[in-house]
Design a protein around this nucleic acid. Structure first.
Ligand SMILES: [Zn+2]
Ligand SMILES: [Zn+2]
Ligand SMILES: [Zn+2]
Ligand SMILES: [Zn+2]
Lengths: 602, 602
DNA sequence: GAAGTAGGTCACAAGGTCAC
DNA sequence: GTGACCTTGTGACCTACTTC
């Protein structure tokens, strides 16, 4: 665990005290829960509260058998030059044995040929140190092999998440090319200040990546490059793909909800998995139309909708299925827990988890509205001059209100059947990437089509969201909220919906993807069972929208990531969103992007 | 649950806080504290890793049906339906009883406070053991649902003493991860000489362990890694828990220290562990990093003196270590609650309350400094133009870090003998007006004469304070902090001092002023008793300073009070400081008069 | 044997280089 | 400034060996 995946996604500072006693009783936990209601600060409390005796760790990996090893590992020989690909689509099968055995095999003789290599370079190295010949050799070998493989053809290269060029490995936490790797390194080494001459929305692709440093760097941050995400050393064996699940990782950013045209800067096809070909294909289409001048983005866009479901499943846009809520949804009433069928059983458990870890209730909403607490802060009337300052303030306001919910979501997740048994890294990944989606979904309860209302009665309007993120996202988020409201989902449905968002098997590098997929399916079934009629489709659409928003949100985090030092956001908040923070490093700081255009206040 | 409660809470967090809290058993409280202790505690990783769903144990995916596993779940849920609601109100009632009952008994019970307390430390491992990660198999074990109840099997991941990553075993005498093990091996194999590019105080954690070899190696040595500490072969049956002991070693180079001896920054004095010392010495020279140059020297604290106390229990002891020794207080020691004289008895109770509700411990301080986490945000380098914007941001940063402590102070107050019996309004007043003073006093533990350090490692300098308040106040606050540090107060003394600040009879409109006065006097006596010599006078002076600061602070709050709408600070924070907030005007539901309530008290 | 660690291995990525 | 190429450190896994 830990390693690769987590490293990338997770930042774990406080590990220091790892130990934890456990003597809390459930009572205690529940009780404690009460206090959480309030905002802020409960943080730590939760930690303990939820702890179980023995603390822990349930790491996944099925009990006995490792589930059959699917394709027996593609053998040690790395396929294409870069073997990283695999990393993303990790698999669970942990057959240590098998793997090792395999690897142990013919290490394949690496021919020393290359040793000779250009002497010149060697010479200049001042560093004394004994140099390991072996490595050199290897490298050389690699090179050669790679070339060959490439020629072999099909092994399509994995694309750089930033510019789409052929990636050379996993750099700074992201599959990227040499160019972007170098660029990012230089950027963080010296305090460079970039500036975009245009609107700060340049599309970054291989052909024009050097045209706007600002946007390139921004993109780097958006896809998650960070010094904190570096992964050293050999990549854990386990990460191997198994059951395909071609779900692309990120990539398609539909986010269609808002109806707004997706921006899709993130493009960077996540690599359809072993399907080198597939990846290629995905690209192709795009290329065709645009003639490729400078718009690879088109790709994503197109992909957005198409993607998996060609069928009429309500597009998120239509999420607004409206649909009468009645539908006897509350069926759940039979909580009496008799021997019901699994779906119901599951629904009940999830619902319980939801109730115990959620503050955005209808009741709260009523309370807020009743007292007409909803307050639109007249923030905007204030100094708008300093775009950056405004954004900073807003991020803090957001963080202050969102942070407490991290605990809730974690608590919720932990009570979801099967979640706790997943590898810890997976748990972290799921939470980090799913948090926003779940939060937004929950917040929808309180919100209105025009504003996102927090549990303390304050709210953010489209204007605020626009400053925080960008115009499109603001619109999409509010649209999602509105659509969800129109759905009039019951708490039970919401519970299942959010649970599904959390246990989303599509998240990038999940080690136990299949298990997650199974859990997800179960949740899906339960939701479908609960929501009769067309509502099921509506929920599915909502989930898609939420995911798209989540992906986009993740990218839009580039701003706070770049400004982290100045913002100094709450630790937990920073952690969930992979925003660097003081504890993480003492030196290197990110270059400051000029905040102006950086923001999409246009 | 939650909801209902939350509603209430939302309206009056503080009040709610007060009311609840109590029903937790001491156990619970203590436990909770644990996590809090580390402050850092609030990390996502921790949230996920350390806890398990409430009591529910992890359950693997059952053979085939996830459904299966799902089913298992519920028994844990003792309360019927998601018992939401009601919980809040009832709890309040109950708590009344419970509270009184609790209070009534001899505080004695608090036994192991010491033991439990200190989180990080050591003892942790309840169960068996450290299972090396490699044994993946083991991990998998939990597959069966049944396991849950048993609670067996699951073991927490043991952290690397050097970087906090997951340890893979006991290497070179220290529980460490593969990375650190390999790093240390290479380091001692080839005589490498590392150099720190900074001040030699880099915080070493998984995320940045590769950024500074010098500091990593230093840390390795500090925690006791050494070639001759190796332990071969199977581990003797029972010797288990011992290996953790070493803990204290560390390098506590409290600020003061660092500068001092110029040498061995890390020095790892005590090195409770065997081997370490020798190694350490060897390093120091090479590095001689700090060379004192840029240290925050001045600080009086001789710090280094530190522990050495071999015995295990000492650890948390160091908590109060210093003074404590002489005072013979040794609180816990006598936990057995013998019939001591009232003053001591009181001191003990207060100390316990303090320990259970305070994050600003010496340990944390050591940890922060040790890792030189202290980060001066370069905020000021940013746009200073917008004074207002800057201030707003700073207020948010302050609030984000201060808010969590409101809970602590409330918790502390509630455990103070007599406090809970006071009229609720008095309780509120005391807390509202005393909070800042108590907080500042506690924060002094971490701070330096030049900056106010928060528990997340970030800090505010005079400059920042000046922006928040004003020049004079900034200076006075820092001066107070410095003075307090010079006093070298033990935790026991600090506990009594802060208790006195809280139970200050001079606060404006107290209904039960006389009672408060009485309580205050008792505390005062206890403090005087504890602090012999002239220290008593010093403490009295400190208390006066604190009060003065508190008053001034209250006045200086005019700014955030006036700007509340734009700031939208966290609810709890706003409440303690009587800053208007959205919910407040609901009754009036309309106008936003800025200054509005605020002056309720005083 | 079983349990458990030092050391070795070598896939991999951070950084440095230096023609462009 | 960029990025193909190279050097070197890292750390996941193993093997060999030690101690119970
Ligand atoms: Zn690229
Ligand atoms: Zn641009
Ligand atoms: Zn380590
Ligand atoms: Zn260093």
């Amino acid at each position: 665990m830990t390693h690769p995946a987590r490293r990338g996604v997770a930042q774990a500072p406080l590990r220091a005290l790892q130990q934890q006693q456990h003597l809390y009783s459930l009572e205690c936990a529940l009780t404690r829960n009460l206090s959480i209601g309030t905002n802020y600060g409960d943080s730590l409390v939760w930690l303990v509260i939820l702890s179980s005796p023995d603390g822990v760790a349930a790491r996944g990996v099925a009990g006995r058998g490792n589930r059959e090893s699917f394709r027996a590992e593609r053998n040690s020989r790395k396929k294409a030059p870069p073997g990283y690909v695999t990393r993303y689509l990790s698999s669970i099968c942990m057959e240590r044995r098998a793997a090792s055995a395999a690897r142990r095999l013919p290490p394949v003789a690496r021919r020393p040929s290359s040793v000779v290599r250009r002497p010149s370079s060697v010479v200049r190295r001042p560093s004394s140190v004994v140099r390991r010949p072996s490595s050199v050799v290897l490298q050389a070998a690699e090179g050669g092999g790679a070339a060959a493989g490439a020629g072999g053809a099909v092994r399509a290269a994995v694309p750089c998440r930033v510019c789409g060029d052929k990636a050379s490995g996993y750099h700074y936490g992201v599959t990227s090319c040499e160019g972007c790797k170098g660029f990012f390194r230089r950027s963080i080494q010296k305090q460079i200040e970039y500036r975009c001459l245009r609107d700060g929305k340049c599309h970054v692709i291989r052909l024009n990546r050097n045209r706007c440093q600002f946007c390139r760097f921004k993109k780097c941050l958006a896809v998650g490059m960070s010094r904190d995400s570096v992964r050293y050393g050999r990549v854990p064996k386990r990460s191997r793909e198994c059951d395909t699940m071609p779900e692309l990782v990120h990539t398609e950013n539909e986010m269609g909800v808002g109806a707004a045209p997706g921006v899709a800067p993130g493009s960077a096809p996540g690599a359809a998995l072993g399907a080198a070909p597939s990846a290629a294909s995905s690209v192709a289409p795009s290329a065709a139309p645009g003639s490729g001048a400078a718009e690879p983005p088109a790709v994503t866009l197109g992909g957005a909708r198409s993607e998996t479901s060609p069928e009429p499943r309500a597009r998120e846009a239509d999420l607004g299925l409206e649909a009468r809520a009645e539908a006897g949804v509350d069926a759940d009433a039979e909580a009496q827990g008799g021997g019901e069928e699994p779906a119901q059983e599951l629904a009940r458990v999830v619902f319980a988890a939801h109730c115990n870890n959620n503050t955005y209730t209808d009741e709260l909403r009523r309370s807020l509205y009743n007292h007409s607490i909803i307050v639109l802060d007249d923030f905007d009337n204030e100094g708008d001059g300093t775009g950056s300052g405004e954004a900073a303030l807003l991020w803090h306001r957001l963080a202050a209100r969102m942070t407490p919910h991290v605990h809730e979501v974690v608590g919720f997740a932990k009570r979801l059947p099967g979640f706790y048994a997943l590898p810890q890294d997976d748990q972290l990944i799921l939470i980090k990437l799913g948090f926003f989606e779940v939060w937004l979904t929950r917040a929808a309860r309180l919100s209105t089509p025009a504003q996102l209302v927090f549990d303390d009665g304050t709210a953010f309007t489209h204007h605020h969201l626009e400053i925080l993120y960008d115009h499109e996202f603001a619109g999409a988020a509010l649209a999602y909220v509105a659509a969800l409201r129109r759905l009039r989902a019951s708490e039970q449905e919401l519970a299942l919906l959010t649970a599904g968002l959390l246990l989303s098997p599509h998240r990038a590098p999940l080690a136990a993807r299949d298990r997650v997929a199974r859990l997800h399916r179960a949740l899906d079934d339960a939701l479908r069972h609960l929501a009769r009629e067309g509502r099921a489709a509506a929920f599915a659409a909502a989930a898609r929208s939420a995911r798209a928003l989540g992906r986009r949100h993740h990218e839009l985090l580039w701003w706070p990531r770049a400004q982290w030092r100045r913002l100094a956001l709450p630790a937990l908040f920073a952690e969930v969103f992979d925003i660097p923070k003081a504890e993480d490093d003492n030196d290197a700081q990110f270059p400051r992007l000029d905040t102006h255009n950086a923001q999409s206040l246009n």
